[in-house]
């Protein structure tokens, strides 16, 4: 098992190398005059600017290979570069933004997995009954709903009409509290930090802010989880051993819980891993709608402003997470299904 993990981790640098080469190859198609646009936020901002001096200063006219070796050299010194679009080093930007996205994802993943599996099981058990149809229609509707439409609708109702779930991460007063020296930041995730500081008022405030984006994300991914669980359950329920279990007179819920569910969960685990990645990466729109400053917002701003160091940095970061999550998923297989042995 350990050697398996080590072997998998050894692949990491290879993956990273591939990704960075790919990104730099893409960037090399852009000339220095395109790249200099990063430093001029808009067409009207180019005033009294010597663009050539900027190009010289930041070596934007270097050949791609030289740029790449310089970048790798910096990376080896632990320097991912400066992000022009977020006004801080790329490392700092990721470090500050990731907790927000992680918090959002963790909060979303729990209801998605539990709710999705539960609904999927119900749906398959009551195959072709009204309850199955209802959940399926609901699933298809939510799955086909664009995230920004659903997000805006949730914001309008949850904040505009009811006033319960405001956008952002914290209310103004709570932000000021968090800034104080007496409040210690442990994880950057406000819900957890506030509990550790025994500040339940801030916890409550953070919770209020996170519910709407989490609900939006959950709605979008429930459907996905539900459909996978349902089809995999249906498959298993038609297997011979399930019929045998029923034939020997076991109660239906024992058949489902003990015999069917465990086997049905294997494909679910695979997609759950991917879903986690999808959630981490796909929060861009939801973060924008709810003004939730996480990695998604960072990436989209960086990409539209051609902030190369930031885009590359975030891509690297996601690549590392991707490899790690996939590894964890593989490890989980062996836990769920004892037949799987990792060597």
């Amino acid at each position: 098992m350990l050697s398996y993990i080590v072997r998998r981790l050894m692949f990491l640098p290879v993956v990273l190398f591939g990704i960075t080469v790919l990104i730099f190859a893409l960037i090399s198609t852009l000339g220095p005059w395109t790249r200099v646009a990063t430093f001029i936020p808009s067409p009207d901002a180019e005033r009294h600017v010597d663009l050539e001096a900027i190009i010289r200063k930041y070596n934007l006219d270097d050949p791609p290979l030289k740029m790449y070796t310089r970048w790798v050299n910096n990376l080896l010194h632990g320097n991912l570069g400066w992000s022009q679009s977020s006004h801080m080093t790329v490392m700092e930007a990721i470090k500050r933004r990731f907790p927000a996205t992680l918090e959002l994802t963790l909060f979303a993943v729990i209801p998605v997995i539990i709710g999705g599996i539960l609904l999927g099981v119900i749906s398959s058990v009551y195959h072709n009954k009204p309850i199955d149809h209802t959940t399926r229609i609901m699933a298809i509707t939510l799955w086909s709903m664009p995230d920004f439409v659903l997000g805006l609708a949730v914001l309008m109702v949850g904040y505009g009409v009811l006033g319960w779930f405001p956008p952002g991460r914290l209310s103004a007063w709570a932000e000021l509290e968090v800034l104080k020296e007496s409040f210690r930041s442990f994880t950057g995730m406000h819900t957890i930090d506030s509990l550790l500081n025994l500040r339940f008022d801030i916890f409550w405030d953070a919770l209020r802010h996170i519910i709407a984006p989490v609900f939006t994300l959950a709605c979008l991914w429930w459907a996905f989880m539900l459909r996978i669980t349902r089809s995999s359950m249906l498959d298993v329920l038609n297997q011979d051993y399930v019929r045998t279990a029923r034939a020997k007179g076991l109660a239906e819920n024992v058949v489902i819980k003990k015999h069917a569910l465990g086997n049905a969960l294997i494909p679910v685990t695979t997609v759950a891993g991917n879903m986690l990645l999808g959630l981490l990466g796909g929060v861009m729109i939801v973060e924008t709608v709810f003004n939730y400053p996480g990695l998604g917002l960072l990436t989209s701003t960086a990409a539209t402003r051609l902030d190369v160091p930031c885009v590359v940095g975030v891509a690297l970061f996601y690549a590392i997470i991707l490899v790690l999550v996939n590894l964890v998923v593989d490890l989980l297989y062996s836990v769920i299904d004892p037949r799987v042995r990792l060597e």
Partner: peptide
């Protein structure tokens, strides 16, 4: 005074004003 320049979505800003 808090100047929050990070709300790019107009509808969000409008709701914050309303509330």
């Amino acid at each position: 005074v808090i100047v929050n320049n990070g709300v790019t979505e107009f509808n969000t800003r409008k709701l914050m004003l309303q509330k």
